[in-house]
Nucleic acid binder design. Structure first.
Lengths: 340, 340
DNA sequence: TTGTACGCGTTATCAT
DNA sequence: ATGATAACGCGTACAA
């Protein structure tokens, strides 16, 4: 085994054929004789030839990779969703370049800029919570680079998106709490700029309004995505003069914080406080009582987003109408919501 | 804003200078006049020029990206470690291509092959549990592509690695259990091929031997990385005629399964069964009783691996001795280990 | 079926 | 300080 990198030229020289012939033989081009094809392939195998994808990509005009931009990999939903994308990308021979924004708008812009420069084949993006300016997304569209939003999207940009029915499932969750006899229901949400959090808030409000419950500002909490901020907000909410008897949390992580503070304050779950989270993380089933939560189709969301993206990639000049796919999520009821 | 992609040539034509001049100006080459440099940069800015990284990479001979190959993104440790790598890669202007093997050896080989073809600048790899043949790693080294193993490594390959002291910390954990008076201590490990699991097993054995405890085969469990297999193994272990009174689990996830089965069997934690996990996942603190666990420096491991990799990348012809960095992990004691 | 010549966008080398 | 030319490795018209 030599350590020199073999290229098309080497194979061509050895077999005394042209580079084009070798190129065609390796890629099963129709106009090539069976004989030379095998001859070339055999030698390529022997020499452990590997096509230089960079060179190929240069004249393809784009990389055989897609860029995935998410807030944080350690959020359970994104790790799952990325697995779904990989399933699709792998079959088509594409790599996935994953970038975390860490909820920073500046970082998001820099990443988009960089991936555009890398001539990525397409983007799958879930917005950072801090993103308020959308010029970098507009630039992607201007360059006609395929773009699909998922989970956290951006209404101002005309492109495909894959989301869940945040409004509907939050509404359903709150209605469930109402049926179980809860009277003072709170929503423990994310930062005020995060659209999916606000959609859930709207679902919450709709449910309350429908059942003629009052909308109490102190029961509509916004908090940052870090445990310190969440802990303080939980403390404030649970020590209200009139504390809630049920809480719909934006995420399981927030629900964990609420569990913790409730325990410290001696509040009994579910008898004096019912709790519902979001994401159905593995540990939710192990808490005592087990946490009721919303199961999100994270894997399917990633897979669908990738499928739609590759539709865009494979027919670039097709005039298409941007589609919005809404996937179903479902309520998983466990011990943290009271029985009746 | 036009939608045409601007290239060096366009800028050169407009300013009536050569492409080389533009290229130099944009990259702050020393031999360029201040005046033209600014002229070029200003126009580039106006036209929203973005250098084509693919073309650059073609003559760099490699991509400005590193390949990260891990078993599963949803394992907490890997999501954390990747954040550490990103911190380093970002500063150097490198992207990260992340690939999951899903614990499949075939997948791992295919990924390595593909990333080599993509002319990746270097690899950071954590082995799949099924990997027994190392030819694909040897090929990386033969091609002189930088390679760093982390967490799960491969002794047969001479290269850098970043690991934790699995032997030592497992030994320490078992000794702690012995001090607390546990008499029948078991190890609940991963698949028999996984090196880090076996290292922990050795640490376990060393601790028992030192304290003249018997080594009982039924107390040394191997199980696959899926909840079904883990559940069955947990059931078998806990329903032994002489069940253990303490278990060191390979991971928090395994510990969760042991919690669950113990509860179902009415086994009290920690009074009749002490439990220690590995990873210090966020939910461990919330279980009742809270799970004692080994905190691993996952972020630091990723960061260190990336730093070492870039050392290799930046001086490719340096003759260097492969180094092994061992990071410290620590025991976090909580309610799941009995008090005395 | 095969070969020739050129292009992909940029950088390096060697002139000037 | 700037320009001309040849790489980088491969694919693709077009020609033969």
């Amino acid at each position: 085994m030599s350590d020199k990198i073999i290229k098309l030229k080497d194979i061509a020289r050895i077999l005394s054929v042209s580079e084009s012939t070798v190129s065609r033989a390796l890629r099963d081009h129709p106009r090539i004789s069976q004989a030379t094809r095998e001859k070339v392939k055999t030698l390529a195998e022997q020499l452990d030839y590997m096509p230089n994808q960079v060179a190929r990509n240069l004249q393809n005009r784009h990389m055989n990779a897609i860029g995935v931009v998410v807030p944080k990999l350690s959020y359970y939903l994104y790790a799952q969703a990325i697995s779904g994308m990989e399933e699709v990308a792998e079959q088509l021979g594409y790599n996935i370049i994953i970038c975390q924004t860490n909820e920073s708008a500046e970082r998001e812009q820099a990443i988009v800029q960089d991936l555009l420069s890398t001539r990525i084949a397409g983007f799958i993006i879930s917005l950072s919570s801090a993103t308020v300016d959308f010029e970098h997304f507009a630039k992607i569209k201007r360059r006609k680079v395929p773009l699909v939003f998922f989970n956290r999207e951006c209404e101002d940009i005309h492109t495909d998106r894959v989301i869940i029915d945040n409004f509907g499932v939050a509404q359903k969750a709150v209605e469930h709490l109402i049926e179980r006899g809860c009277k003072r229901i709170a929503y423990f949400g994310g930062p005020a700029e995060v659209q999916i959090s606000n959609r859930r808030l709207e679902g919450y409000r709709a449910a309350l309004t429908t059942h003629q419950f009052p909308l109490i500002p102190a029961y509509m909490v916004h908090t940052e995505f870090n445990s310190k901020s969440a802990y303080q907000a939980a403390d404030r909410l649970l020590r209200l003069p009139q504390p809630p008897d049920a809480i719909l949390a934006f995420s399981d992580q927030f629900a964990y914080t609420l569990y913790q503070r409730a325990r410290e304050l001696g509040i009994d779950i579910p008898n004096t406080l019912s709790l519902i989270g979001f994401n159905n993380e593995p540990a939710t089933a192990l808490l005592q009582p087990a946490l009721s939560t919303v199961d999100q189709p994270a894997y399917a969301m990633g897979k669908t987003a990738a499928e739609i993206l590759f539709q865009q990639i494979q027919r670039p000049n097709d005039y298409y109408r941007a589609q919005t796919k809404v996937l179903q999520s479902s309520l998983v009821l466990r011990g943290s919501t009271r029985r009746s």
